[in-house]
Design a protein around this nucleic acid. Structure first.
Lengths: 193, 193
DNA sequence: CTCGAAGTGGGAGTGAACTGTCGGTTGAGT
DNA sequence: ACTCAACCGACAGTTCACTCCCACTTCGAG
């Protein structure tokens, strides 16, 4: 019942060996690509194939599908979403900041539908992860409402819902989502008195 | 290589025997229920179990998963969607007719997410099926535009997109979709002035 | 009511697709 | 040069789609 070389619980002090780190990164990249190309249910075998490693190696790095998807998601958020949110926070005009971040989110997510679907399926959206994006998003919303350009009854989660709504339109026509986002933005703008 | 008793290609002149027809209906009903309860990937074995028939009977009635899902979808459209469209066509006020049908569609589809997901996965949305709903929908849209209450640049497929957008909000909170539909309807109404 | 045909049950079985594990081997780091 | 982390390939085990078979039941035409 001991753990001879437990792949999951890894002492954070000892760094990965060079080749192991390479594989780790290759698997993450391969998983992201595979989720897009082959859908949210890709076989881990296929991910391993794309990464150029044996399936057993994948299982040594990640305990299973859940952990792999969670890692890919974490990777994506840290690399794409958070910088976007940070840039938006630096924009002066609240409306521009808000629409810009929504456009950026939709644009990114439409290119990672497979990942997001898989993440939902395995429950990779932890409260912590959600909070990390909702907090800055809520701040943008608050600024817009304070400036009187955004409807007062909107909540931070509404913004995620709006992103989700816009993203699904890409299934019908991948190039017309700005049209539908504008439809929603129309509804979100404060009513002119 | 001959076909001793080919289960799929059935002479359309000879009707099903009473018990066979019963099973056919039971399987369709069971499949619909199973798709909701167990998700779009339910095992056909499970469907057969729910229907109270042997797996072999299911395969005798339907060639495979694709055909079963297509039949369930066809059934659903004929039974729920088309009557709804027909009722809306009889409503006098164009705006009421349009919003009513959109609400009805969303309400129905949110209760059949599994079916719709499965249908998408197996490509059961044939152009013919789409046309059967798009034609009446387009007519409702045309009436609204003629009356000047709906934005002129909307197209029939936009209405399906709007339904889809609204339906996905149910994943976040199953009871708040009217809120988001209203957001969209705001954007769809003709600009006053 | 009778009888042939249509339909069914259920089990055994094939093959494919995956997940996850094991033991021997390689090569990175010291 | 030596050792152990990390690798690979093979494989056990599962699940599921779909097929085949045949004795049995049920239907419905005459």
């Amino acid at each position: 019942m001991s753990a001879p070389s437990d792949p999951v619980i890894r002492p954070p002090d000892r760094p990965l060996r060079a080749d192991a780190a390479r594989n780790h990164a290759a698997i993450l990249a391969a998983a992201r690509a595979a989720l897009e190309a082959d859908g949210p249910d890709v076989a881990l075998e296929e991910v391993a194939r794309r990464a150029g490693v044996a399936p057993s190696t994948l299982y040594r790095r990640f305990a299973g599908r859940d952990e792999l998807v969670a890692a890919v998601l974490e990777d994506y958020v840290a690399e794409s979403v958070e910088p976007l949110l940070a840039r938006a926070a630096a924009v002066d005009d609240p409306w521009t900041a808000l629409t810009g971040v929504l456009e950026g989110l939709v644009d990114g997510v439409t290119r990672h539908r497979g990942l997001l679907t898989a993440a939902k399926a395995v429950g990779a959206f932890t409260p912590e992860l959600a909070a990390r994006t909702l907090a800055p998003l809520g701040e943008l919303l608050r600024r817009g409402q304070a400036a009187g350009v955004v409807r007062a009854d909107l909540e931070p989660t509404d913004l995620l819902v709006v992103v989700h709504m816009t993203v699904v339109t890409a299934e019908h026509d991948s190039r017309r989502w700005p049209r539908y986002l504008n439809l929603l933005l129309d509804g979100m703008a404060a009513r002119r008195g």
